[in-house]
């Protein structure tokens, strides 16, 4: 079966978001900004002013640090672009969404359906996953221009807030929907049925470890 392909604005309407289905392939047009632990801590814990009009300029938060350089003349050289794993940012995302109106959270690996139901759905937001991982060169081709890099002196290049104009940047996969369904959990549930047979004949370790789970359906990330 061929996956459905969709072009989406980074300031999408509620209808645009409602039309997305799990497993759709999405290409983005408009401004995206990168924000991960460095930006979240600076904006939410240290209360620094966010140097962008959000969500008017962009409702798309990319959990990303590009492979990029700031040249000596202040211009930017941006090569490949891929995401970092998003589950680590659950601590900050509810407040970030409330503050910035983000509708598209883009990253690696998604969040749990609990996260989707408790603060994505009420904010009308969905999760887009990068593909692979990662299709850094393909995503890099979707970068039309780097509009600005904020806080690079404070946070370093990898944690700075990169503001990127994209033209058909992709592919991304829709990994959550407005019902709070989770693409990865759906797949994990299908695989789980096979695990008992797979593990048959293996043996738990003689020496146990604290905090260990033997529940193979455990999502581990939460």
């Amino acid at each position: 079966m061929k996956l459905r392909q969709i072009e989406l604005s980074t300031t999408p309407s509620a209808e645009d978001i409602a039309s997305l289905r799990l497993g759709d392939v999405v290409y983005l047009n408009g401004l995206v900004y990168t924000a991960r632990e460095g930006v979240y801590m600076r904006a939410l814990e240290q209360r620094a002013n966010i140097p962008l009009e959000l969500p008017a300029e962009s409702a798309a938060n990319f959990h990303c640090s590009p492979a990029a350089t700031i040249r000596k003349d202040g211009s930017f050289d941006l090569g490949a672009v891929t995401a970092t794993a998003s589950f680590r940012f659950a601590k900050w995302l509810p407040e970030w969404m409330a503050k910035t109106g983000a509708k598209l959270i883009i990253g690696k690996g998604g969040m749990s359906s609990k996260d989707y139901k408790s603060y994505f759905v009420p904010n009308g937001a969905v999760y887009l996953s990068t593909v692979g991982y990662g299709t850094g060169a393909l995503l890099g081709r979707g970068v039309e221009n780097v509009e600005a890099v904020h806080w690079h002196e404070e946070l370093g290049i990898a944690q700075a807030m990169w503001v990127i104009r994209c033209s058909r940047m992709g592919p991304f996969l829709v990994a959550s929907d407005l019902n709070g369904e989770c693409l990865f959990e759906r797949e994990n549930a299908k695989i789980a049925g096979n695990l008992e047979r797979l593990y048959a004949g293996t043996k738990p370790a003689t020496l146990k470890r604290f905090g260990e789970t033997d529940d193979r359906t455990d999502e581990v990330i939460g």
């Binding site: 990303c64 492979a67 490949a80 990662g134 299709t135 850094g136 060169a137 393909l138 995503l139 890099g140």
Partner: peptide, 26 residues
């Protein structure tokens, strides 16, 4: 889904070589 991902990766390797840019952003 997994076939789609592998095809995308194969395209990505070509794109990296053509553009002389890193395969992956990380």
């Amino acid at each position: 889904l997994s076939s789609y991902v592998l095809q995308a990766m194969l395209e990505n390797y070509e794109a990296a070589k053509q553009d002389r840019r890193a395969m992956c952003g990380d």
